[in-house]
Computed example of a mutant assay.
Amino acid sequence: MIKIIEESWGWVGIKPAEIIGQNDFGNLIIRDVLGKYWRLCPEDLYCKVVAENQEQLDSLSKNQDFLADWYMSSLAGEATEKYGVLEEGRKYHLAVPGTLGGEYGISNIRTISQIEQIRFSGDLAYQIAELPEGAKIELKITD
């Protein structure tokens, strides 16, 4: 998984060493080789530093706003009700990412292989990284 994160998201500067945590929507907390902690958020197409060290991570893990965003309890409950308990290696996924206007609702949720999710979100994030906010895009899905 570390190799896939580096291949798909290395362009943001992450050099992953260890996955510290993950949620049902494929969000990851990753410790890098320098001891910084990153959050990879597939539904919002970002991977960024959230804590410079263990102390900051410990503080973040007590922040109620962060925890509510991390667990997405209500939406996770709806997804579990619709799709059942996730199989090993699968995550819930916003079909249209929130960054692109996708709704945080059950009608926009599917399940996906976690590896595919990391690759897809990293590739899409890379493609739109230089676009100005509010830019119009056309999303084409091909085989």
Rank of each mutant, 00 (worst) to 15 (best):
C41N: 14
I118H: 10
W9S: 02
G77K: 07
L139W: 15
E18L: 08
I141H: 11
P132T: 07
I112Q: 15
I128K: 12
F120T: 09
Q22Y: 08
I115W: 06
T111D: 14
I4G: 04
I19L: 09
D32V: 01
G77N: 06
K48H: 09
I141Y: 13
P97C: 12
G13N: 05
Y126C: 10
G101W: 13
S59M: 09
E78M: 00
L94R: 07
C47V: 02
S59A: 10
A79P: 00
E6Y: 08
L40F: 07
Y126N: 11
L124V: 08
I5G: 05
S107K: 13
I29C: 08
K91A: 00
I30K: 00
E43S: 14
F66G: 05
H93P: 01
E6V: 07
I5E: 04
I137S: 13
S74C: 03
A79F: 03
Y46E: 06
A95W: 11
I14G: 03
I128Y: 13
I109A: 12
G35T: 01
N53S: 12
E133Y: 12
K82W: 03
W11I: 02
K36I: 00
V12L: 07
W38R: 02
N27S: 06
G105C: 13
D143E: 13
L131P: 11
I106S: 15
E103D: 08
Q54Y: 07
T99C: 09
I20M: 04
D123R: 15
L57G: 07
D24I: 05
L139R: 15
Q117C: 15
C47Q: 03
S107G: 10
Y83H: 00
N53M: 09
A135V: 07
F25M: 04
P132W: 14
A79T: 00
I14K: 02
V12A: 06
N27D: 07
I4Y: 14
Q56A: 10
W70M: 02
G26R: 04
G89W: 08
M1A: 11
R110S: 15
L94Q: 05
Y92Q: 04
K3E: 13
